[in-house]
């Protein structure tokens, strides 16, 4: 139970970092490290290495809760980055369109 809470807190904290991280921030590096760590676990589970499950059982961690929360973590992180990227593209598009529009202003 305690391990579940710790893992859950870990997820929440990393998502919080992802939400508030600025470009070129040191937190971004931390986020990359955390994400890489989870990616490694994820692939280990995919390959079917029992080592992780053994570790989980030693930590008294429900593997299903772990897997569900891991998947949720990836979905949330991925969504944040997609929304950010789309937002950035939209801002650039708006700036360019605005510049073009202001150049062609006429009095009618």
């Amino acid at each position: 139970m305690l391990t579940n809470i710790i893992i859950f807190t870990f997820y929440i904290l990393s998502i919080y970092y992802a939400l508030n991280v600025n470009e070129n921030s040191k937190l971004r590096i931390l986020l990359i490290i955390i994400s890489s760590f989870f990616i490694l676990i994820f692939f280990s589970l995919m390959i079917g290495n029992n080592l992780i499950f053994n570790l989980l059982s030693n930590l008294v961690l429900d593997k299903y809760i772990f897997l569900i929360s891991l998947s949720m973590y990836f979905i949330i992180i991925l969504s944040i980055y997609i929304i950010r990227e789309l937002k950035s593209i939209r801002e650039k598009l708006t700036t360019v369109s605005r510049k073009l529009a202001l150049r062609k202003t006429s009095k009618k």
């Binding site: 708006t94 369109s97 605005r98 529009a101 202001l102 062609k104 202003t105 006429s106 009095k107 009618k108």
Partner: peptide
């Protein structure tokens, strides 16, 4: 006798307002 600004694509009312404010 009005100033007419035309966005090349539909961006939304918020973007149109900002363009107007900038002008």
């Amino acid at each position: 006798g009005v100033f007419l600004i035309k966005h090349p694509i539909n961006l939304g009312q918020g973007a149109a307002l900002q363009t107007g404010i900038n002008y």
